[in-house]
Simulated scan of single mutants.
Amino acid sequence: NKALQLHYGSTFEPALIKEIQQVATFMEVLEGQDLLKPGQFIKSMPLLLSGSIKIMRPDADGEELLLYHLEKGDTCAMTMTCCMGNTKSEIHAVSETPAKLLMIPIGKMEEWSRKYKTWRNFVFESYHKRMMEMLESIDNIAFNNMDERLEKLIADKTQILNSKHIYTTHKEISQDLHTSRVVVSRLLKKMENDNKIRLHRSFIEVL
């Protein structure tokens, strides 16, 4: 309840906060845990209280491209779209850090949209924010070189994790960027030679 008030008390009116408390299911997940897989029907939508979640889109070959991150106070526009259309998920959601969520039954979405202006605004703002992030991802892919995309990914992870020590593997980074591990390793080494990062056995240190 304290986390709900902290992150959403200024966003939602008291009556809506009370309803969320009554119907939401609290979920706590570990780093790397699957929250939603492609092809699954969605029965609830998340309100993120803490942590970070990666939203990825698989291609026909099963390779995945990072679309955007969810952080505290966020929800997922792709999830909401599937909820409202009663369609199967087209995304893969996985926790990048330990996370705490409130899962809202999808039946409440339309009801709250009629009853609460703050909920309607929250949904529209979430769509807009996620759309802007996806457009940024498209621009990044279309116009930036792989070294620029890698530097942006590392900068984003530094901000999301609030740490200059990024515990990840070259393989995980290559999956996020939809490229090969060899390319990532070469570009990381170049960044180290340029004194932008320092490579350690189990983490990357941002200088």
Rank of each mutant, 00 (worst) to 15 (best):
N1R: 15
A3R: 11
L6T: 15
F12Y: 09
I17Q: 09
K18P: 03
Q21A: 03
V23T: 14
V23P: 05
F26Q: 14
E31W: 02
G32I: 14
K37S: 15
L47W: 07
G51E: 15
S52Q: 10
K54H: 13
D61G: 02
E63H: 10
E64Y: 14
K72Y: 07
K72E: 15
T75H: 03
T79R: 03
C82S: 15
C83W: 00
G85V: 00
T87P: 00
S89M: 13
E90M: 08
S95I: 13
A99G: 11
M103Q: 15
P105G: 03
I106M: 12
K108G: 01
M109Y: 05
Y116R: 04
K117T: 11
W119Q: 01
N121P: 00
F122E: 02
E133N: 05
M134N: 08
E136A: 08
S137R: 10
I141N: 00
N144D: 14
R149H: 04
L153Y: 08
N162C: 03
N162Q: 11
T169P: 01
T169C: 04
I173C: 01
I173G: 02
I173L: 14
Q175D: 13
H178Y: 09
V183C: 05
L187K: 11
K189P: 00
K196C: 06
E205Q: 06
